[in-house]
Design a protein around this nucleic acid. Structure first.
Lengths: 197, 197
DNA sequence: CATAATATTGAATATAAATTCAATGAAAAT
DNA sequence: ATTTTCATTGAATTTATATTCAATATTATG
């Protein structure tokens, strides 16, 4: 690859990562193009050479987040709690390999919630919401005691909201360790899970 | 009270509540003064008659949030888990009485995280962070098995981040019930707690 | 080496949003 | 009933930020 092409990719990636971090930490409107340019150590003009607008840049990040989230972790699951354990493990290990993933995760949640973000972008993020699918798994597993009693949808909502909350706080607390997966799983865990201790 | 004074208070309160909702849902910069004015059904000019700037309005909300959080719930506690149970119960019941409290709670968390918000405002929010105090309670209670093993600060961090995450999602999901307090408590609960089931 | 293509900058320009203000209407005071 | 004070509006104005662009530097190509 030519020096130019290489540099181009590097710069593009630098913008992407810095933008992800800032958007995740401070939100869409609070993140100024100038902030991103400064973080990426380039002029504003150059940033616009790589991305035609702030919105398009943001959209690209959300698309990357969606792409990443879709990647199915192919695994066989003994008990349905493992679905949740491995979801979390998967996210944590991806973040360890590539810290940017944390920001992307946070970004997706923010995008889902913030109704001032353009609809066509929000829809991308809303499309990969985990809550419904997880609610079905919980509903099925409750009969066997894998999950605690209660409205499956509310349990799923609580679990994923808690995870989102933890990720958001982690994103601004770089010194903090990841919580143990069990701590989060216990939000939804039922008797069957407990007996297996 | 004269008609004027009454109206003045009502309008002020209307602005405060609508602003809290929008700021909590969409963040500081994504919430435009025009959005607040529209939500409160008044002109932008009038809004500025009540609050001298967007920043001052936001600051007032954060101060209210701080004020509210400081209110000590006077209660005697049999076991230290109750401290957390009652904290959550207290928040939930306050939200039930006055939905605005939910937005205030969310606002405080956002303010702590978002480094583009003026420092003097952030400091108000950062001053009432629960994590450290809760970590001490956890550390003390771990010896007796009230709390699970693990770094007390990380446990506290995880618990409060989870609560924050749930509140943030609740703020944009008006139809959703509150989770059961136990589900959240189980993030930190230890063996002693479990034996008491 | 000369020329073309692309990268980069810093300074305009355009846009959006916050803030101000002069004018008008409504309540209170005299 | 008149005057004064405050509430309210909509139209400026100012300010902040996104976006464009002409000029310059750097790399690639013949």
């Amino acid at each position: 690859m030519s020096i130019r092409e290489e540099q181009k990719e590097q710069r593009r990636w630098l913008i992407i990562t810095k933008a992800a971090e800032l958007f995740a930490k401070n939100g869409y409107a609070d993140t100024k193009i100038g902030d991103i340019a400064k973080a990426a150590d380039m002029s504003i003009g150059l940033l616009f050479h790589y991305f035609e607008s702030k919105e398009k840049l943001y959209e690209e990040l959300v698309k990357m987040g969606a792409e990443f989230s879709k990647k199915p972790q192919e695994i066989n699951i003994n008990n349905p709690l493992d679905y949740f354990r491995m979801s979390i493990e998967g996210i944590f290990s991806a973040v360890r390999e590539q810290p940017m993933v944390l920001y992307m995760f946070v970004l997706m949640g923010q995008t889902r919630r913030n109704e001032t973000i353009p609809q066509h972008i929000r829809e991308i993020a809303l499309g990969i919401d985990q809550v419904e699918q997880s609610a079905e798994i919980i509903a099925a597993g409750q009969e066997y005691g894998y999950f605690r009693e209660g409205d499956p949808h509310l349990l799923s909502f609580t679990f994923w909201s808690a995870v989102q909350g933890v990720m958001e706080q982690l994103a601004v607390t770089p010194t903090m360790e990841f919580p143990s997966v069990d701590w989060l799983i216990d939000i939804i865990k039922g008797k069957k899970g407990k007996n297996n201790d």
